[in-house]
């Protein structure tokens, strides 16, 4: 099999994998990047969300070959020299989680939203996150966390 080159969190990785496999399985099983979660395998829950070219992408439905050479960001790539990303910080401070299993996907989707739109109103956040499930029901807190991150990064970069 030809080697695939993936650009993950700023690092280039060459992998000998079946190009038909899902990006999620390669991240988790081959690269031990387990922040992106399996929740449904059909793009319904959003737990597997990563950024491809800055776009939120369901890694469970994405063939690994289709993202070769494109910049990928996972939850593990948000921290910068020990500093949490403002969205991560806001989720922690707003206690926008219970079991936390959906949290990485929620954070990645929110990071993408704030990159497109620096100051989204609550209905816009709801719209952007509608494809994510939090079975613990912390939806309200997640909306508040995203608002908090938007406030914190006003005038800055997200």
């Amino acid at each position: 099999m030809p080697l695939l080159e993936l650009q993950i969190n700023g690092v280039s990785r060459r992998l000998d994998v079946d190009p038909e496999r899902s990006l999620l399985s390669v991240l988790r099983d081959d690269l031990d990047l387990t922040g992106a979660k399996y929740g449904c395998g059909e793009g319904q829950c959003g737990a597997c969300t990563v950024l491809v070219d800055d776009r939120p992408t369901r890694s469970c439905l994405t063939k690994v070959a289709s993202v070769a050479g494109r910049p990928l960001i996972t939850i593990e790539g948000l921290e910068r020299s020990g500093q949490l990303h403002p969205v991560q910080k806001a989720f922690a401070e707003a206690d926008a989680m219970q079991c936390g299993y959906c949290t990485p996907g929620m954070i990645m989707e929110s990071v993408a939203l704030l990159r497109r739109q620096a100051d989204p109103a609550a209905p816009e956040i709801v719209h952007a996150l509608e494809g994510h499930i939090c079975r613990c029901g912390t939806y309200d807190r997640i909306v508040r966390a995203v608002r908090r991150a938007a406030e914190a990064t006003k005038g800055g970069t997200g």
Binding site: R28, D32, L33, T34, G35, A36, K37, Y38, T74, I75, E76, L78, E79, L84, Q88, K89, F91, A92, E93, D95, M97, G100, Y101, T103, P104, I107
Partner: peptide, 21 residues
């Protein structure tokens, strides 16, 4: 008081059973 392991959750560092190897 915020969740004591909130940082592990928001960084994806916490290992659920399905994340173990």
């Amino acid at each position: 008081i915020p969740k004591v392991n909130a940082r592990d959750i928001v960084t994806g560092r916490h290992r659920y059973t399905s994340d173990l190897t």
